[in-house]
């Protein structure tokens, strides 16, 4: 095989022709993916004033400051909890809902459409509506609890849902699950519809119980769909910003920040540190995806 430079001009042109079609895509990737990544790394080693004036190189100081920040450890742990809880609960709920929607029942079409709503609505809007519903004085939830006579038992502090970091975080996980379920359900539903009816017949003839059929036939055949949905959810949820920002702004203090929200909080005054936080986020997400692909034996299953 001869290298490109040895080719006569006409053959070189022909060999390069595919570049014409790939060019726009390559340019787009270069401009929208590679260039920002390069900038992110570059900025993370520089010292900026809060107003964005370059004050010189920072060496590794942005990173050492970030790692010494007392908020950093808890925020990273919280981010992992956030991803684990949201993705785990989403997948469990979606498996159930998809199974339900795979049955024939009157009004199934309408029900399937309705499921799209939380997905189609703007996430920010959904988060704001939940914030209003959880308002301690005028929110729908507390009005309902008051009418049921349960509010006084809780006490004002317990019923301040977004005021306490633990309760706020639990509610935000619930909202994140709510907006992630439709996509995962549809992915699993699509997977369910590819399972041929014959394998269920075979299972029935072999006398398998329904639970046995589900565990030994349905779940293994759903594996590719579950893998795709989980992988996309992991990336989406880790990068999720609007739910937390709109419901608590990461407060009180930094006690409901995930690393994505913290990156934004840092940006207001510490541009270099914010860039180093996003480098850390970038590394985390690449690592999570690689580990996930490795564990799930991605190539054999899906590609």
């Amino acid at each position: 095989m001869s290298s490109l430079s040895n080719l006569p001009p006409r053959r070189l042109g022909r060999a390069a022709a595919p570049l014409g079609w790939l060019g726009p895509a390559i340019a787009l990737i270069g401009f929208a993916v590679l260039w920002p990544v390069y900038e992110m790394f570059r900025i993370s080693f520089q010292h900026y004033s809060p107003d964005g004036f370059l004050l010189g190189s920072a060496g590794f100081r942005n990173y050492t400051k970030l790692f010494q920040d007392p908020n950093f450890g808890p925020i990273m742990l919280r981010s992992l909890l956030w991803v684990g809880a949201v993705v785990g609960l989403t997948m469990l709920v979606s498996l159930g809902v998809a199974q339900l929607f795979n049955q024939r029942f009157p009004g199934r079409r309408v029900a399937r459409w309705a499921l799209i709503a939380p997905w189609a609505a703007s996430v920010m809007m959904t988060a704001i509506i939940f914030r209003w519903m959880l308002d301690p004085n005028t929110g729908a939830l507390n009005l309902l609890l008051r009418d049921l006579g349960l509010l006084s038992k809780l006490g004002t502090s317990q019923a301040d849902w977004l005021g306490r970091p633990d309760a706020a975080f639990a509610w935000m996980i619930a909202v994140a699950v709510f907006v992630s379920v439709p996509f995962s359900t549809y992915t699993i539903l699509a997977g369910l519809q590819t399972v041929p009816a014959e394998v269920y017949e075979a299972a029935e003839i072999d006398g398998a119980s329904p639970s046995r059929t589900y565990l030994a036939v349905t779940l293994p055949l759903l594996r590719p769909a579950i893998l795709v949905a989980t992988l996309i959810n992991v990336m989406n949820v880790f990068n999720s910003f609007p739910i937390i920002w709109e419901m608590t702004r990461g407060g009180p203090g930094y006690e409901t920040n995930t690393s994505t929200v913290y990156m934004f909080n840092l940006k207001q005054n510490f541009i270099g540190q914010s860039a180093s936080m996003s480098v850390v986020n970038f590394a985390v997400i690449v690592a999570m995806v690689l580990v996930f692909l490795r564990v799930s034996n991605w190539k054999k299953e899906v590609a």
Partner: peptide, 22 residues
């Protein structure tokens, strides 16, 4: 013809990238 098209597309994408940078 092919080559011409290729050149045109390359040129187009280059301008795209340049204007975006600007």
């Amino acid at each position: 013809k092919q080559r011409l098209a290729a050149a045109a597309v390359l040129g187009l994408s280059a301008t795209l990238a340049l204007t975006a940078c600007g």
